[in-house]
């Protein structure tokens, strides 16, 4: 009998499959296609203290086996989330995490403190890795001391599970992971998007209004997998793997490399029900290969 539940320490998931922030809205966008409560967790769209309009159109370009985006954290802000959106989604029987972003440490702290009060939100994912905003975002996550500072400040006010989402746009992601672990993070999730760009050769204009954007999709998976493997060896806290996961075997690779759970992002755009197929596929793989718990599967790569 396979047990798919995952204990991340004060954060229990019924299975290891979550949806990545910015690819699943607030869950309700997908409710026509799947039972949201069947998921291990959903991580809602990056939320900031004040509403943000995001970057100008065009914000997206398809690239080989992937896509670039430059949405720039468009969201309705903390107040609207707490008062309008949260009451609509809190009944989902899944772990609902809020991805928290900001331009300043004070913004992160104020947002995290307010979300700490929401009973149906057992954890936040601190986004110190968004590549598409001019201030804050990735700037916090590409330097050990600034990553430490923002996590340490949020840790003081946020009492539940604190997951920190890391940027791959660094020389050594393991040392950033160690910094946020030392600052009090309960887990790390990686990777956010890789900074990239594309040009329309006919018009000689960049495909994105911001010129550069974040690359996601199957093309980033080998990079993400390598980083997850490096980070699991460097920290003691759980690692949540994401980056190009489109099927069960992709997810299993991340767990064999040491991830405790995974997030599915871009693949939701192509198949809104892909997460359910991944959950079923993991279960099938485990029973076929004699794994009974997620702890057995985690890090079970043969070297």
């Amino acid at each position: 009998m396979v047990n798919l539940s995952v204990d991340l320490g004060e954060l229990l998931l019924k299975n290891p499959v979550m949806t990545a922030s910015g690819t699943f809205g607030y869950g309700e966008e997908y409710a026509d296609f799947l039972d949201i409560s069947a998921l291990g967790g959903i991580i809602v769209k990056g939320t900031t203290l004040h509403p943000r309009e995001g970057n100008p159109y065009p914000r997206m370009a398809e690239t080989p086996a992937g896509m670039l985006n430059a949405v720039g954290l468009q969201n309705k802000g903390l107040f609207t989330f707490v008062n309008d959106i949260y009451p609509r989604i809190k009944h989902y029987e899944t772990a609902i995490l809020v991805n928290v972003s900001g331009s300043t440490v004070e913004d992160y702290v104020a947002t995290a403190e307010k979300i700490n009060e929401l009973k149906a939100i057992p954890a936040i994912e601190l986004n110190i890795s968004c590549p598409n905003v001019k201030e804050g975002g990735m700037a916090f996550g590409t330097n050990c001391s600034s990553a430490f500072s923002v996590v340490e400040a949020v840790r003081k006010v946020y009492k539940k599970h604190l997951m920190v989402k890391l940027s791959p746009n660094v020389t050594d992601i393991a040392e950033i992971a160690q910094s946020v672990e030392n600052a009090g993070a309960d887990s790390v999730s990686l990777i956010n998007t890789l900074l990239g760009m594309a040009i329309d050769v006919k018009t000689r204009r960049p495909m994105l209004s911001t010129v550069t954007g974040g690359l996601s999709g199957p093309c980033v998976k080998p990079v993400a997998l390598r980083m997850v493997w490096q980070v699991t060896k460097a920290v003691k806290i759980p690692v949540i793997g994401l980056g190009g996961i489109s099927c069960a075997s992709d997810a299993i690779e991340f767990m064999l490399a040491g991830a405790s759970a995974v997030q599915v992002g871009t693949a939701n755009f192509i198949d809104p029900t892909v997460t359910l197929k991944i959950i079923d596929g993991i279960q099938e793989y485990m029973s076929e290969n004699g794994f009974t718990t997620m702890d057995d599967l985690r890090g079970a790569m043969n070297i």
Binding site: G25, E29, M60, N69, N268, F269
Partner: peptide, 13 residues
Amino acid sequence: RMACGIGACLCCV
């Protein structure tokens, strides 16, 4: 230009 078609990705604004 859009990705999801269901209001999740916010690319087509």
